[in-house]
């Protein structure tokens, strides 16, 4: 069974978000592997351990090779760098045709990627990729088991409801969490992965879909109200919170 993991960089949630006209300032953005793609990679590694599946990590050329090298250190058999006419800030929906061609090219049986990207204004990758390929897709997956023909997944449907689905392969799955946290890649392991190479380039002719969505403005959200800052010292702050909690119930104290 051939499992392809799509890995993408996303703006690091801890770093400042540099804004520009109509989008982010892509030159200034600090990137990190998208946290859900990270979980998808871990599930793929688990699949490989459990079923001996071949795992191929796939990334866009503009995202660099580091995430592919990390994927190989995490257990991917090889990695593929997709060269295509793709710009920074391309939406997941627009990306779908490009990635669909890559999947067909690689002969993927199972495509896994993260459930969402933080900038997904126009929808998430998994449903659009499934539609492009004409394959069944499930987004919001907590665990994957698979054999050659079908995958069994736990799907988080919200409000505490989890459904176990059996999905015919080939299929596209969007991973929300992995059964174990993403493994650590030590410096030594990464170095060995870099030395091993195993990254090939795949040129894709398909172009990103045109998106009818047009961003008019891109701003920092306005604050609904100013928060009242409590003390920095944890002891003092604990006292303040305790007082707030104790007085709670006395409507006059609340400042809504």
């Amino acid at each position: 069974m051939k499992v392809v993991v799509i890995l993408r960089n996303a703006p690091d949630p801890l770093e400042e978000l540099p804004l520009a006209e109509g989008g982010l300032d892509w030159d200034e953005v600090a990137y990190a592997l998208d946290i859900f793609d990270d979980c998808a990679l871990e599930e793929a590694a688990l699949l490989k351990e459990e079923t001996g599946a071949e795992v191929i990590a796939l990334g866009l050329a503009k995202d660099g090779v580091r995430l592919l090298q990390t994927a190989i250190a995490r257990g991917a058999d090889r990695a593929v760098r997709v060269e295509a006419d793709v710009e920074d800030g391309v939406s997941s929906r627009s990306l779908a045709p490009v990635l669909a061609e890559a999947m067909r090219n690689l002969g993927a049986d199972l495509v896994v990627t993260g459930v969402q990207a933080p900038g997904d204004l126009a929808g998430q990758l998994v449903p659009f990729l499934g539609a492009e390929l004409g394959w069944p897709e499930v987004n919001g997956v907590l665990a994957i088991e698979a054999d050659g023909n079908r995958a069994r997944v736990r799907n988080d449907q919200g409000a505490g409801r989890v459904v176990v689905l059996s999905v015919a392969l080939p299929a596209v799955l969007g991973v929300q969490t992995s059964r174990r946290p993403p493994s650590y890649v030590s410096g030594t392991k990464l170095r060995k992965a870099i030395e091993a190479g195993a990254i090939s380039t795949l040129k894709i002719d398909a172009v990103p879909a045109k998106d009818a969505v047009e961003i008019v403005e891109f701003i920092r959200p306005p604050r609904d109200r100013a928060v009242e800052r409590l003390a920095d010292d944890p002891d003092v702050a604990a006292g303040q919170i305790a007082r707030l909690l104790e007085n709670f119930g006395n409507e006059a104290q609340r400042d809504v």
């Binding site: 609904d224 003390a231 944890p234 702050a237 604990a238 104790e246």
Partner: peptide, 28 residues
């Protein structure tokens, strides 16, 4: 972003605050 909608906010470490908070709630 939680501070955009919170009425009161503290930026100390949760681990530092919790034992204190529990003690004070118990005392009161």
């Amino acid at each position: 972003p939680i501070f955009d909608i919170a009425h009161y906010g503290a930026t100390c470490a949760v681990e530092a605050l919790l034992p204190s908070l529990i003690r004070r709630l118990a005392e009161s």
